[in-house]
């Protein structure tokens, strides 16, 4: 109990009462934390813009019975380039929404903070269309839902993999085929994303297979969460 310090990324904020907000955070060491920021909505608040979604902050919090309270906040990075570009902002929001939905409070997960920070830094440096799907696939894989991409999820053959099925959780060969069709180029791209070739994938321009992977990633994320991803494609 008492005070503690944490580095965190602000995922979303919910208005609370007259001038307060509940801030949803993904922290470096404690997983997801929801904390109250008192008076942030007042123009003279000493928090100012530091607790807006997307900000990477260093915080001091006070443990409460139910929600913790934020007592001090200092910006590490506010991702200004993302903030001032509608395309990047819309992509970043999709990342935040996914993390907020996937990570539960009290889960002691250190990786997600790192992954999100990495994705946001990539987005800050370049507005690439594949950041969101790549992040979704990586996140799903991290959660233990890594799709089968090297062999048919039905019979195990490695030949003629033509479809992707969310229920089977992977690619399917021609005789087992169900679900969505997947082109060989898209499958290769997906293998590279999951196989650790992320950096070179991200530097590629938009392509048909990229679009295919993007669509599939959103569907897979929605399938896993059992709800619609609200922010994907809303502004594009």
């Amino acid at each position: 109990m008492g005070l503690y310090r944490e580095n965190a990324i602000v995922l979303r904020t919910i208005k609370l009462g007259e001038a307060d907000k509940i801030v949803s955070l993904v922290t470096e060491r404690r997983g997801k934390v929801r904390a109250v920021a008192k008076g942030v909505r007042k123009t003279k608040s000493r928090f100012g813009a530091r607790l807006e979604p997307l900000t990477h902050v260093s915080l001091q919090l006070y443990e409460g019975r139910n929600l913790d309270t934020i007592t001090q906040a200092e910006t590490i990075d506010h991702f200004r380039t993302i903030r001032e570009d509608l395309d990047r902002l819309s992509r970043a929001t999709a990342l935040l929404e996914a993390v907020d939905a996937v990570v539960q409070e009290g889960e002691d997960d250190h990786r997600v903070h790192q992954m999100l920070l990495g994705a946001l830094r990539t987005l800050e440096a370049q507005s690439t269309p594949l950041v969101v799907p790549a992040f979704f696939w990586k996140l799903l894989a991290h959660l233990g839902f890594r799709p089968m991409v090297d062999a048919c999820a039905g019979c195990g053959t490695t030949d003629a993999l033509v479809a992707f099925d969310l229920i089977e959780g992977g690619v399917l060969c021609r005789s087992c085929a169900r679900g969505t069709r997947i082109s060989p180029e898209a499958l290769a791209l997906l293998r590279r994303i999951l196989g650790g070739d992320l950096v070179s994938v991200l530097s590629e321009p938009a392509s048909q297979s990229g679009y295919e992977i993007e669509h599939l990633a959103t569907r897979a994320m929605e399938h896993h969460l059992e709800r619609r991803m609200k922010s994907v494609g809303l502004l594009t």
Binding site: T43, K44, R46, F47, G48, A49, R50, E52, T75, H78, R80, R83
Partner: peptide
């Protein structure tokens, strides 16, 4: 910056 505020407490984004 809000009138009557304090530079010291201004966040980087607003001050920028």
């Amino acid at each position: 910056l809000p009138v009557g505020g304090d530079l010291e407490y201004a966040d980087e984004l607003t001050l920028g």
